[in-house]
Structure formats: C-alpha cells, structure tokens
C-alpha cells in the first residue's frame, strides 16, 4: 500500500494538456484555415511540416526543440531577454514543446473540418455582404463542430500521453516538468511498481474515457 501518492504530477499533466489544447486551438484555427483553403507549394511544405511529429521519434523532435529553446537557441534567447527566464526545464518550455508535438492532432481534424464545409454556403455568406471573419465565426465554425471537438479532444489526450519530448525538453523536475508519464518512468526506475501502477491506471482510464466520450459525441453529431 502506498502511503502518500504525490498528486502534483497529475495536476501538472492536466495543466499541461489544458494549456496546450487552448493555445493549439488558437493557433490551429488560422493555420488550418490557410492549409484548407489555399493550394500552393507553400501549403504542401506546411502540411508536411505539421504532420512531421506523427512520424519523427520524440527524441529527434525533443533534441531539436532543446537546441531551439535553450538559452543559446534563437527562441530560448528571445524568451530569456524578454522574461529573464530559461525555456528549457520549465513548464512554459514543455507547453511549447507539446504544442509542436500535438500540432497534427489539432491541425488535421480542423483542416478536414474546414474542407468539409460546403463551399457554396461560404460563398452565400459572402454574397450576403458578410466579411471573411464574420463568415468564419457564424457560418464555417458552427458547421464543423464535430471536427473542432475531435481536434480539442485528440490534442488533449495526445498531450496527456506525451513522454519523450517532455523528458528531452523539460527533464524531470518535481512540480515543474514531472508529468505523470515521467513520474511513472521514475517510479519504475526506482522499482516502486505500486506508484507506477496507480499512475498508469489513472492515465489509462483518463485516456480511455476521453476517447469514448469523443466517439459518443461524434456519433450523435454525425446523425
């Protein structure tokens, strides 16, 4: 029996997943809109870049991110000059890494959603004098709710399940970057199978429930 299971990794994981999902959604809407409705060589490159985290080992992604976010890297240096704080081995750093890592989970459903909205209702809105922005919020997004939900849920679930990238960029710092997946690794290394069991069980259930809810809602919205 475990005497006292630290809840910090759990809270940190949920916080990370929530922040990542929210920020990804904000970035995802304009990015997917562009990918879905523009056809040129640049979008081809962009689409390939967005899909990269699906095929790259998390260590490769993590390695490059580490270089990019470190104090000597371009992004890390900028961050340091702005906030006088490191990006690597911090919560902000793993949020940023998670955004890159979970990018396809948000962009793919959203751009598929944008493409699924009939072109003529978008054009109808334009002929009725509505700007592209008003059309986006009042016609396009409300008619792709299932895709939006899929993007949100997949990004959330995918971030919960993240391990390699967080470890590379964030390390294993209690209360800052030790999310559940890393706490499990830590516990197993310390041959504390009891703790590992509980964390693993919680992640398993959480991920399963999230996906089940997603499929249930999608089934209902898809008629």
């Amino acid at each position: 029996m475990i005497e006292r299971l630290p809840t910090e990794p759990l809270i940190l994981t949920l916080k990370l997943a929530l922040w990542t999902t929210i920020l990804l959604f904000v970035i995802g809407i304009p990015l997917s809109y562009y990918i879905a409705y523009t056809r040129n060589k640049f979008t081809l490159v962009l689409e390939a870049l967005v899909a990269l985290p699906l095929v790259l080992p998390p260590t490769v992604l993590g390695f490059y991110l580490l270089l990019l976010l470190s104090k000597e890297g371009p992004l890390g240096a900028l961050w340091y000059s702005l906030f006088d704080k490191q990006l690597v081995f911090t919560f902000e750093g793993i949020v940023l890494a998670s955004i890159i890592y979970s990018l396809p989970m948000m962009i793919h459903p959203l751009s598929a959603g944008f493409r699924s909205v009939p072109k003529n209702i978008i054009e109808a809105s334009w002929t009725l004098g509505k700007s592209k922005l008003e059309t986006l919020f009042r016609v396009i997004l409300p008619n792709m709710k299932a895709s939006i939900l899929t993007g949100l849920v997949l990004s959330f679930a995918h971030t919960i399940g993240e391990f390699g990238v967080v470890l590379m960029v964030g390390g294993n710092i209690e209360g800052e970057t030790r999310v559940v997946s890393i706490a499990i690794y830590d516990a197993v290394e310390a041959i504390d199978y009891g703790t590992a069991h509980i964390y693993a069980g919680i992640l398993f259930l959480l991920s399963f429930i999230t996906l089940a809810v997603l499929f249930a809602i999608n089934r209902r919205w898809g008629h």
């Binding site: 009939p118 209702i121 409300p142 008619n143």
Partner: peptide, 13 residues
C-alpha cells in the same frame, strides 16, 4: 447581389 444557388446553400446551423 441576391444569389440563389442551385442547391440553395442555406446555413444548416
């Protein structure tokens, strides 16, 4: 312009 599309293009939402 008042455009009436062949398949009506009503907003489903």
């Amino acid at each position: 312009v008042g455009f009436v599309f062949q398949d009506y293009a009503l907003f489903p939402n």
